[in-house]
Write a protein that binds this DNA or RNA. Structure first.
Length: 625
DNA sequence: ACCGGAAGCC
DNA sequence: GGCTTCCGGT
């Protein structure tokens, strides 16, 4: 199976896009983007008096708005820049879900790292230990949000932006594979380090890279990365570790989330080169160092059990969606103890009857091109006016903005039975939907946006209608090291954190379990296969959702909304959405797999670190102007 | 302060 | 696409 997996994983060979390393070349823009810049400032101590991390993970406060504006203006050669304009730009990020305002706190904003990462750096290799930079945005609890690629090619194409289209990735990948990473870096940019590292990695581990790339989005966990790491290059590794030390200011927790992901990592990697290296040494958390970390991981029941258990624990710890639970046939994982009494122990990961085999996935790797991942920012919500107006446009059809979410819980409510405007039906049908899902995804994003939840993140689809929403209770998770200040409420909402797991693993999870990636690939036609078996989970899911919803509400109640509420609007979900929703929930077929793996946070972190690195080199001010 | 529409620039 | 600029509104 591994081989199969491998193939799937490395179909085309994804690589990290060049732009990932260069802020300047960030997608969509030639120049440095504001958020990169902010991150850059954040990571530099010298600007601590100007802007600094504060409060929750990802939350930062602009201590000196004028100065920040000045710096930004300098960087962009916009002397006329001022905080008013800068803040407008920041607000512009709200729609993109990259940032949101921390209500009630002056000049305080919060990154939604997940989104950033996913969106912009889906394939980044967070690799290694480059270490979470101090400035790394915190992504404590969170899960990552990811979206699945559209199932159909057409969809893919249609997708608005597929960011860097697959083609791009593949191209890059190839390049990288060759070790020509340097391309990216012409001297201009930043990164020598990154590039070098990347290059090294690639050379050393050709496929791995690809692998990583793929995984990254879904498998956030650091451990995962680590394992694949195997990166020969020391440089990257070395640095990070040291840096990791917690900064007072930095929101980042020192330690990465312990998570299941780590466990998986090994799993995945076996095939890959797992050479022990410093990386491995750098284990995020003790927990990771489980046996699983050991060089070899087998899918045998015991191991799986172990893994699952760990995963389950993590799910609980992170308040992940039930969907996150891995399913492994025949193995029942004992439930972790959860603080919360309520949580039902019920879920055992039962395997759905039909295990998916990787093979099922249709084109998975085969198509020559990599699966189309389309990670994109969500479309901005419709303008309020429009919405209000009832702009029909919304495209969607019917979208009415349904109500949105009342305070309590948007989606959750719906799930619970609240009347959700949109969703309503839970389609039990589920799986099949995937395609739909995918499809939807592309477009849906726009529609969905709603943010219902706290998150509002990027993957509305997932989140939205469906039940999904689970955000991690940020505060709670024990494992995650709390930031200095944790506010109970704060984060919960934060969307960022929300972890939407894609889907539960489909049935056959055993195998699937392992690879999210696979799922990706699958998309294309996969619906068929999945459907058969997979779906049955639904009921459980629903149940879980409810549970979660309840829990979430209880725990989080507050905030989530924050930003998102407003946006909710978009929702107009279409009927289809509803369907999809169901699906998604399910774990939608393919996605499912992914879900398993992902431990959210890490990824983000890594991504962030990468970003930081990338940005690090930029000069804050641009003299050139 | 903060929000977000609209128009415009690159 | 990603702001920048301007601006009316809360």
């Amino acid at each position: 199976m591994i081989s199969t997996l491998t193939l799937l994983l490395f179909p085309a060979g994804f690589a990290f896009p060049e732009w990932a390393y260069k802020p300047e070349s960030s997608p969509g823009s030639r120049q440095i983007q504001l958020w990169h810049f902010i991150l850059e400032l954040l990571r530099k101590q010298e600007y601590n008096d100007v802007i600094a991390w504060q409060g929750d993970y990802g939350e930062f406060v602009i201590k000196d708005p004028d100065e920040v504006a000045r710096l930004w203006g300098a960087r962009k050669c916009k002397p006329q820049m001022n905080y008013d304009k800068l803040s407008r730009a920041l607000r512009y990020y709200y729609n993109k879900r990259i940032l949101h305002k921390t209500k009630g706190k002056r000049f305080t904003y919060k990154f939604n790292f997940n989104k950033l990462v996913l969106v912009n750096y889906p394939f980044i290799d967070m690799g290694s230990g480059r270490g979470v930079p101090q400035s790394a945005p915190p992504v404590p609890t969170g899960g990552t949000h990811f979206r699945f690629p559209p199932s159909t090619p057409s969809e893919v194409l249609s997708s608005s932006e597929e960011l860097r289209s697959p083609g791009v990735f593949s191209t890059v990948a190839r390049r990288m594979a060759r070790g020509s990473v340097s391309d990216c870096s012409d001297g201009t940019s930043t990164n020598s380090e990154l590039e070098e590292a990347a290059g090294a990695d690639e050379r050393a581990v050709g496929p791995d890279r690809a692998f990583r790339g793929l995984l990254a989005p879904r498998l956030p966990h650091e451990s995962m990365f680590r394992f694949y790491a195997g990166h020969p290059n020391p440089a990257g590794l070395a640095r990070p570790a040291p840096r990791v030390h917690p900064e007072p200011l930095s929101p980042f927790p020192v330690s990465p989330l312990p998570g299941p992901g780590g466990l998986l990592g090994p799993t995945l990697s076996p095939a890959l080169s797992m050479t022990p290296n410093p990386h491995l040494a750098y284990t995020p958390s003790p927990s990771l160092s489980s046996p699983m970390m050991s060089s070899h991981f087998s899918f045998n029941p015991e191991d799986m059990k172990h893994y699952l258990q760990a995963h389950t624990q993590s799910v609980y710890n992170y308040h992940l969606s039930p969907r996150a639970f891995l399913h492994y046939p025949n193995i029942v994982v004992p439930q972790p103890h959860r603080p919360t009494p309520e949580k039902p122990a019920t879920h055992h990961l039962h395997g759905p009857p039909m295990p998916l085999s990787l093979s099922q996935q249709p084109g998975a790797g085969e198509d020559g091109h990599p699966s189309p991942f389309k990670f994109k920012l969500q479309p901005p919500p419709l303008g309020r006016k429009q919405r209000e107006a009832g702009s029909s446009l919304a495209a969607s059809s019917s979208s009415n903005h349904s109500s949105s979410f009342t305070g309590s819980g948007p989606i959750a409510g719906s799930a619970l039975g609240g009347a959700p405007p949109k969703i309503k039906v839970e389609p039990v049908s589920d799986l099949s939907e995937e395609d739909v899902e995918v499809t939807d995804i592309s477009e849906e994003d726009e529609l969905n946006q709603n943010s219902e939840d706290e998150e509002g993140d990027m993957f509305p689809h997932l989140a939205r209608s469906r039940h999904h929403h689970l955000y991690n209770g940020s505060s709670s998770s024990p494992s995650a090291p709390p930031p200095p200040h944790i506010n109970p409420e704060d984060d919960p909402d934060d969307d960022e954190e929300v972890f939407k797991t894609p889907a539960t693993p489909p049935p056959g999870s055993g195998s699937s379990l392992a690879f999210p990636l696979i799922g990706l690939k699958t998309e294309p036609g996969q619906a068929g296969p999945v459907s058969p078996g997979g779906t049955r989970c639904i009921p459980l899911k629903l149940r879980f959702k409810r549970r979660w919803s309840e829990d979430q509400r209880m725990e989080a109640d507050g905030e989530r909304d924050e930003a998102e509420d407003k946006k909710v609007r978009a929702e107009g979900e279409e009927q289809e959405d509803g369907k999809r929703d169901g699906e998604e929930d399910n774990g939608g077929g393919r996605g499912v797999i992914l879900g398993l793996m992902l431990p959210p946070a890490p990824t983000q972190r890594r991504a962030s670190s990468e970003l930081q690195r990338a940005t690090a080199q930029l000069s804050l001010e641009n003299t050139g102007c």
